[in-house]
Design a protein around this nucleic acid. Sequence first.
DNA 1: TTCCCCTCT
DNA 2: CTAAAGAGGGGAA
Length: 597
Amino acid sequence: MEPSQASESLVKRLAGPSTGKAGLAKDQSEINQIIADVSKGSKFYEASNNEKKKDEEVSKKIEQILKLRDELSSGVDMQRVETSVDHIASTLLSKLESERDLSQTIVHFDLDSFFASVEILNNPELEGKPFAVGHTVVSTASYAARKFGVRSGMATFIAKKLCPELIMVDHGFSNYSDMSKKVMAICKRYDPQMCPAGCDEGYLNITSYCAEHAMGADECVQHLRDAVFAETKLTVSAGIAPNLMLAKICSDKNKPNGQFHLPFDSEAIISFMHDLPIRRVPGIGRVSERLLESIGIKTCGDVRTHRATLSLMDKQFGLVHLLRTHLGIASNSVEPPQREERKSIGAERTFQPLGDKDKILEKLEEVCTELESDMEETQWTGRTITLKYKLETFEGSAFILPPSVNLIHLVFTRAKSCSRWISKKEDLFAIGQELLLPELPLRIRLIGLRVTKLKDLRSALDPSIGIKRFFNGPTSPNKKPRISEEEEPCSVPEASARKRKPDSKPPPPEPERHICPVCGKGVATENEAFNAHLDSCLSRQAIREAHAEASTAPPRPPTPKQTDIWAQWRKIKKSHNIIIYFVPLYFANVALTPLPA
DNA sequence: TTCCCCTCT
DNA sequence: CTAAAGAGGGGAA
């Protein structure tokens, strides 16, 4: 697939509902590209869908993969490779097939539009109406709202455009958690080892229950769903299959308020997988979906078709894993969640930008108080303290930014490792100050503290095993040994020792040049070079210095030339009625679109 | 290993 | 007119 083609869907999504407007067809697509580029790193872009943010990176990756594939297969007789791969694959497949275990009956249950259903219980008037739970972002849409295209994760203002009648309902978290507990308790009757997967779904192994109660799986699950409904008035959908992955996929089959029982039969399972879009497989996300699509794999059945390529590119795609997926083989072990092995614990707070040292310290203290009580509650202590702060909204800075830019988050972290175990508020506050004070004066809008290099005060004896979710196989024993309790020398890095990110390589000579929207200098048009330039031009350090300068000196007036550039943008925006939501954050990986003449 | 940064919910 | 907070992990020295 062409990379440009790959970003088409992204571009459309970014452009929003007005994309199809008549009369602008060709122009619009160019403009859309601009919006896409400009939106990169924007709040809208990030909040609405991570797929978009990743889009360009994925495109690059795809390019690399296709290049690699072509290199690998050039000079190689694909026919012959396929034959030899067939051998590998068939050996592999029969080995995998022999691993297949159909002896356990696994159930995945999933409450139907959980938040929305609970809200209906609290306010029956909502029944049948298009409403959504959430405020700025939709958490859950009622089924009536879904008909309009309203979906979870969607910004409210977009949802309202799709469905002007949409009623927004605020979260009632405590209700959700109460209901969730009730449902989980009911499910546990069918398998005491039940494994919740979030507040509205979970896994069960009902093999024993069925045997003990002389029940079929369908009957058992129907029984469970009836019990849930009788006791909570919530409907639940379920999938019955020989493993977790299949059960999860199956619970979606007859949603809402239904159940689906996959035949426990190798052939039936393989044919079930055959037409299943690979995206539906738990663990295959947007990125993997696109990568696989680039080599022609859209369904689980396609895995077999493209086994030659996959075998050549085992490193990139993981042949065995995909073959298992194709066969519908996965873990069937349901265990209660393991005791969590935390890597860090922290707290942070956002507030109106503060410049006053004492006020900032007050906030820091607040954070410390919270962190201390969290650490006390969960019984953790640690040795490394990381301070995090966000600079205030970036306005009237020394940089020339387009008028629509009014929000830039600049996040900084400063860390220090100690010889002692830290968990007392006083210690947290002292170290927090130590890290923060050298940074001031600064106007900041967030302050946070996080403790890492943890030690479990409950002296966990059970070496917790990583939760095997969907797949068997060697879960990498990545656990690092606990830090010894011996006192170690404290390492305090000098502020001056902080290195700036080295500038990227200079761009190769390019005939065409454009004006960098940040520094106003001419920059090579070629994408990579342009991005390299932006990276250095917008390095944290550079912005930070500018920020410091801007907070003491009045904002530098834009040079006419740079103003012109953004005036052009404004014009484009106006003439095409485009909403440019937010503009690149300082780190935005902006693809360069030549400015219209 | 340590620190800083980025990414993913 | 767009979430905030919390966590994991990787690169660079």
